[in-house]
Design a protein around this nucleic acid. Sequence first.
RNA 1: GGUGAAGUGACAGAGUGGCCGAAUGUACCAGUCUUGAAAACUGGCGUAGGGAAACCUACCGGGGGUUCGAAUCCCUCCUUCACCGCCA
Length: 423
Amino acid sequence: MLQVKHILENKEQVIEGLKKRNLDAETLVQQIIDLDIERRASIAKVEELRAEGNKMSKEIGGLFKEGKVEKANAAKAKVQEIKSEQKALEEGLNDIEGKFNDLLYHIPNVPHVTVPAGISDEDNEEVYKEGIIPNLHEGAKPHWDIVKEKDLVDFETGVKITGAGFPVYKGKGARLQRALINFFLDEADKGGYAEVIPPLLINEASGIGTGQLPDKEGQMYHATSDDLYLIPTAEVPITNIYRDVILNEDELPKKNCGYTPCFRREAGSYGKDVRGLNRLHQFDKVEVVQVVHPDESYNVLNDMVDHVKELVRQLRLPFRILRLCGGDLGFTAALTFDFEVYSAAQERWLEVSSVSNFETYQSNRLKLRYRKGQDKPQLAHTLNGSALALPRIMAALIENNQDEKGNILIPEVLHKYTGFDRI
RNA sequence: GGUGAAGUGACAGAGUGGCCGAAUGUACCAGUCUUGAAAACUGGCGUAGGGAAACCUACCGGGGGUUCGAAUCCCUCCUUCACCGCCA
């Protein structure tokens, strides 16, 4: 969440920035500022009373020792009075803080200055494009037909086992999936990212830390009997490694990568581009995460974009990079670049990666800080990116690389992982 | 899952109702000494909130309770360790 101090000191800038999200935050920000004033006044009062009570309690100890029982009992009565007054004030303070935090949790991150205004994904700004869009032969098929014919992905059996959106990958399809995971992990390793295998279930505190809770509760699968959530992305468990951590400045940057399945309820997106591998409830992804010095985060964002660019390039997929507009930007992000690959038979662009800088929005919730020498701890910046999400990569590979004879040609970089060069 | 023990600052480790935000040691930082280093000595050394400041408040695994007063007593949850049971 945003830092209260930042809101107070940059009120106009915050309101202006949020306008790019089509959010008129004027009232909201003013409410926060007003509540903050109320809050401080209330804290001052409560603490004053508390100090007085503490002081008297100490004195009572002395009085008893001296045997002045009568005086002590009088003081006890007085303290009891103070306590009941204090209790009433504390309840008031709790109310104020509850409201205050609620408002704070529901303010999204302020977009970076370079974020274009806009309503939807149609307003995203294309900043880069590379690769040749393949000219498919007559009779080329969409991937959902191909995977069925070649028995690479079995959607029906997935429906039987679990439900829609939980496919079974089979044979060479499974092998290709595993090959991509290994390729992405090896590349991340080369990029200096230390691999982790995190838990796939997270607790509430972790969900709050990275911003999935309370805002996106409905997008996660919730195991209610244990109050745990299935991860929607490895970002959550990996970034939460650093929750409540104070790093030394020289430990930055922290770079981690990890492969995990991701689980998303996709509530509200039924019937929208859901064919085949385009949108699933469970999918595989390799994620890269960095914790960096605030001065470095935008350089690092570019590095991460370059890393992803290199992955797609090596897979020989035509791609473009979009700078997300305010309307499409995620709740917690300050700046996001999306990668889309072209899936030639569907004749459409598919999002395969999202690379974001969260600045201090997550670290403020996570209490993730770094310390320079003996100075006070400062909030670090967090970033993450998909590198990459698998199913749509697979869809594009299958569609773009089909030849007239019905072969799917596997990109060369994957051969050593697949053990075959075509399907 | 059962039984028992335990969770205190970066770490180790005291503290069983007021003198405890917390002894002591180690580590760390600054200084003295030294040609330099080590050793020794002196001082400093948690986080957060409030306040212009002095200073005040909160935090001893989490939450709740008893009490004028809780690290200390009670309840509950979590975690760790040991043993038993079950099991990839």
